[in-house]
Design a protein around this nucleic acid. Structure first.
Length: 159
DNA sequence: GCCAACGTTGGC
DNA sequence: GCCAACGTTGGC
């Protein structure tokens, strides 16, 4: 399968790019949306590129780069009764929810804000720049990924 | 903290 | 299978 590119959202209160830099690698459990599940279960492959997006942040935006360190596998928290990620859909034998592992690549010197993304040529069709885009795992094109990477490294003037 | 946009649930 | 009610996301 060819290398794909993704945007993955996380609230800073839960996990940040600095946390990922410290841990080098983390598991991405707890996604409970079928569209996002399908991406993780069916399409994400080790080595895929990830834009790490901080949501509900000040400002919200892409804070760095990551990579898929392990392709989709069943999320065991889904069948842990009492756990905040417990869900009645699926069972241990027929898992409903999947997760991936994510590895650290780089932290941007400063956040590429949503405002900047919206104002940057080439990112007009990016899912995260669309109104009401709530999906926490989104596909991005290679071209979009490269534009955001250059923005993050300060290699292009913002807006 | 507000609230619009969205996904899910459940009555019918 | 429709759709209103509800809960959640996430920008602001």
């Amino acid at each position: 399968m060819p290398k794909r590119y993704w945007l993955m959202k996380c609230e800073p209160a839960a996990y940040t790019i600095d946390d990922l830099a410290r841990d080098a690698r983390t598991s991405w459990e707890g996604v409970r949306n079928y569209q996002a599940r399908n991406f993780m279960r069916d399409l994400m492959q080790e080595g895929d590129g990830v834009l790490f997006y901080a949501s509900n942040a000040d400002p919200s935006g892409v804070t760095g780069l990551a990579t898929i360190a392990k392709a989709g596998y069943p999320d065991p928290f889904a069948w842990k009764k009492g756990h905040k990620y417990f869900d009645t859909a699926g069972t241990r034998d027929t898992p409903a929810w999947y997760m991936v592992d994510v590895g650290f690549v780089e932290r941007f010197p400063s956040t590429v804000s949503l405002e900047t993304l919206k104002a940057t040529k080439g990112l007009e069709r990016m899912m995260v720049t669309q109104k009401g885009s709530r999906l926490s795992v989104q596909p991005v094109t290679k071209a979009e990924y490269e534009v955001v990477r250059r923005l993050g490294r300060g290699q292009v003037r913002k807006t």
